[in-house]
Amino acid sequence: MDLHDLTAAYALDALDADEAEAYERHLGQCEECREQLAELNETATALAFGTVAAAPPERLRASILDAAAAERANVVPLLRRRWVARGLAVAAAAAACIVVGLVVSQSQSTQKQVFAVFVDRNGNATITATGLGSAPSGKTYEAWVIPATGPAKPAGLFSAGATTTVHLKGTVPPHASVAVTIERAGGATKPTTKPIFSATA
């Protein structure tokens, strides 16, 4: 059985349990299949929208939320605390292999800004920003990776949309920080303004 050939069937959930298990093991070792699966899975999921979306019974929403609350009854939800001042980082929850830094900030405007940083075990990082307005005219947003020692490294320029996902150039070493500043159009080689956001992995 050539496992490379199972990507489409896996994306459609059309493998038997043992085939799926073998394919998942293969996936751990095959970058090519991981990339192809990401594409085909997205397309397969489009089929979910190809059928009539009947409204679920009202009770389902409450049932899910009640069950969720019962599972984590002792945790204080983030949003019941005050929305925190701009730039204040909420301590990162270190999941098994992914570091997530999350910053929620609120400026004078009512728009809340949420930055989430995801760093995988290889140091590849993504920033997702929501509520970030466009950079001022003639300016750009610039992402930085700031190692524990040594200078900040430019990690990419971006402009903001309603939601912006930025894959950072380079990798984020342990204990490094990720920051975003506003720089002149074209970008800078080192940060020249105070970060509007920073988080430490």
Partner: peptide, 8 residues
């Protein structure tokens, strides 16, 4: 990301 922090 918020759900991961138990934000219901």
């Amino acid at each position: 990301a918020l759900a991961a922090r138990s934000e219901q």
